[in-house]
Every structure is written in structure tokens, then in C-alpha cells.
Amino acid sequence: MSAPHIHAAGTYDDLVDWGPQPDMIEGQSHSTGRLLHKGPGNSPETGIWVCTPGRWRLSVPRDEFCHFVAGHAFYRRDGSDEVIEVTPGTCVLFPAGWRGEAEIRQTIRNIYMLA
């Protein structure tokens, strides 16, 4: 397909089980998603990601742009007071190497792109 796309990405429900979230601190977050496109060498990669409540460690290996379309969460960066609250409509660019914790309070859904 020359322009991969998903209609109604905010409610699209044909998702694949991606399993439990690794590096759990509290709770039992579980992920589902749908890969939309993966380029040569896995870059870029884009798709839909859904994650249930819990708290876990996070290390971002590549630049990642996220458009959150559902849920409520906090991302806390290691070594700083930075706290990013996400709700529907929030967009965040996590630069490669960003490290911290994710605390999912209500199941989140985001449309992501890894560069």
C-alpha cells in the first residue's frame, strides 16, 4: 500500500495482544496494538498502542512521537522534576534516550511513530 492508513484510529479495535508491560513496578499493565507500517531497518515505525493501568520503568530507544487519544497517565523523567501528564489530545515527543517511569491511571491509547 502506498499510504498505509487506519480509519477511526481512536476507536479501531482489531488489535493484537502485545503482552504484559516489562519492568513493572506496580500493577499489571498489559499492551495491545496494531502495527501500521515498519520501514526498512524498522525505521520509521508507526501504529496504535493501548496500555492498561499500572506503573513501570521506561527507556525510549529512538525518537518517539505519541498522540494520545484516550486515557490518563503521567510520565516522570529520571533525574529531574519533569512530569508530563497525558490526556486525550496530548502530543509528546520523547527523544531517544529518555528514561523514567510511566504511571497509567486510565487505559491509554496512542498513535505513535518511532524514527
Rank of each mutant, 00 (worst) to 15 (best):
1 M>Y: 07
1 M>P: 01
1 M>V: 10
2 S>H: 11
3 A>E: 10
5 H>P: 02
5 H>I: 09
6 I>P: 00
6 I>D: 06
7 H>Q: 08
8 A>W: 12
8 A>H: 09
8 A>Q: 11
9 A>I: 04
10 G>I: 03
10 G>D: 10
12 Y>Q: 02
12 Y>P: 02
12 Y>G: 06
13 D>G: 12
15 L>F: 13
15 L>G: 03
15 L>T: 09
15 L>M: 11
17 D>I: 14
17 D>W: 09
17 D>K: 05
18 W>R: 04
18 W>K: 04
18 W>I: 08
21 Q>N: 06
21 Q>W: 03
23 D>A: 09
24 M>K: 14
26 E>G: 03
28 Q>S: 13
28 Q>A: 13
29 S>I: 02
29 S>A: 14
31 S>R: 03
32 T>V: 05
32 T>A: 10
33 G>C: 05
34 R>S: 13
35 L>A: 07
35 L>N: 04
36 L>K: 03
36 L>Y: 02
36 L>M: 08
37 H>M: 14
39 G>W: 09
40 P>G: 08
40 P>R: 05
40 P>K: 12
41 G>W: 10
42 N>D: 06
43 S>G: 11
44 P>Q: 12
44 P>I: 14
46 T>G: 12
48 I>W: 07
48 I>M: 14
50 V>K: 01
50 V>C: 02
51 C>F: 01
54 G>R: 03
55 R>W: 02
56 W>D: 06
57 R>P: 00
57 R>A: 08
58 L>C: 13
60 V>H: 01
60 V>Q: 00
61 P>K: 11
62 R>D: 11
63 D>C: 10
64 E>R: 15
65 F>L: 10
66 C>T: 08
67 H>L: 15
68 F>W: 07
68 F>G: 01
68 F>M: 07
68 F>Y: 14
68 F>H: 01
68 F>P: 00
69 V>Q: 09
69 V>E: 06
69 V>A: 09
70 A>E: 12
72 H>C: 13
72 H>Y: 13
73 A>M: 05
74 F>P: 00
75 Y>F: 15
75 Y>E: 03
76 R>M: 15
76 R>G: 06
77 R>N: 07
78 D>V: 00
78 D>H: 10
78 D>R: 12
79 G>T: 06
80 S>R: 13
81 D>E: 12
81 D>M: 15
82 E>D: 14
84 I>Y: 03
85 E>A: 14
86 V>R: 15
86 V>L: 05
87 T>A: 04
88 P>C: 06
91 C>V: 13
93 L>H: 08
93 L>C: 12
94 F>R: 11
96 A>Y: 07
97 G>S: 05
97 G>V: 09
98 W>P: 00
98 W>C: 11
98 W>N: 06
99 R>V: 12
100 G>S: 10
100 G>P: 03
102 A>N: 07
102 A>Y: 04
103 E>C: 02
107 T>I: 06
107 T>H: 01
107 T>E: 02
108 I>L: 04
108 I>A: 01
108 I>H: 01
110 N>C: 11
110 N>P: 01
110 N>E: 08
110 N>F: 12
110 N>W: 05
111 I>N: 05
112 Y>N: 07
113 M>Y: 02
113 M>K: 07
113 M>E: 10
113 M>N: 10
113 M>I: 11
114 L>W: 09
115 A>G: 13
